[in-house]
């Protein structure tokens, strides 16, 4: 028997969510009041297995953090999908949306029942403008993570 809460918003207590935020890399040095404020901007979304989160070409509206479950990032190719990445708890997707005004560059589908935390791009910029202290911390972390990505890619290129 499957037990999927239809409305995760109610099931996940705010306290638990605030604790979870602390375990995510970009939010882990926020103070409790800052996390409480951030919580006001977070939508908790439930995805069932094989449900599409978004497709390549959709406008970049939302930035997701995986709370639980497993999802795949892939590119639609004519003959079949090319898998790019697997997302698991604490991973995030759509962070590029925060910095660029472009459409989704890949598609995401749930591989199993998953819970995602969604923050709209506009709400995120509003949060940063409203709480610059917390905003700076998050942006620094995001910058560090993007640098890490570049390093990894550099290593890959030089290694081959």
């Amino acid at each position: 028997m499957k037990k999927i809460p239809d409305n995760a918003e109610k099931i996940i207590e705010d306290k638990e969510l605030l604790k979870f935020l602390l375990s995510i890399e970009i939010f882990n040095n926020l103070t409790k009041p800052e996390r409480k404020n951030l919580r006001k901007y977070i939508y908790v979304r439930n995805f069932k297995k094989a449900e599409i989160v978004f497709k390549k070409g959709y406008p970049d509206v939302v930035f997701y953090v995986v709370k639980s479950g497993k999802l795949k990032v892939y590119l639609d190719k004519g003959e079949g999908d090319m898998e790019v990445n697997i997302l698991q708890s604490k991973d995030f997707v759509g962070e590029m949306a925060l910095f660029m005004n472009e459409n989704r560059t890949a598609s995401v589908t749930a591989l199993e029942d998953s819970v995602l935390l969604a923050i709209s791009k506009r709400d995120f910029t509003e949060f940063i403008a409203k709480f610059p202290r917390a905003g700076t911390k998050i942006l620094y972390k995001l910058g560090a993570i993007l640098c890490e990505h570049i390093m990894k890619l550099n290593n890959k290129i030089s290694g081959e």
Partner: peptide, 17 residues
């Protein structure tokens, strides 16, 4: 949040946008 949380996944991003 209450309003947008009640929207199904298919239309969530769309309605927010």
């Amino acid at each position: 949040r209450t309003i947008f949380s009640s929207i199904s996944n298919r239309y969530f991003e769309f309605s927010l946008h």
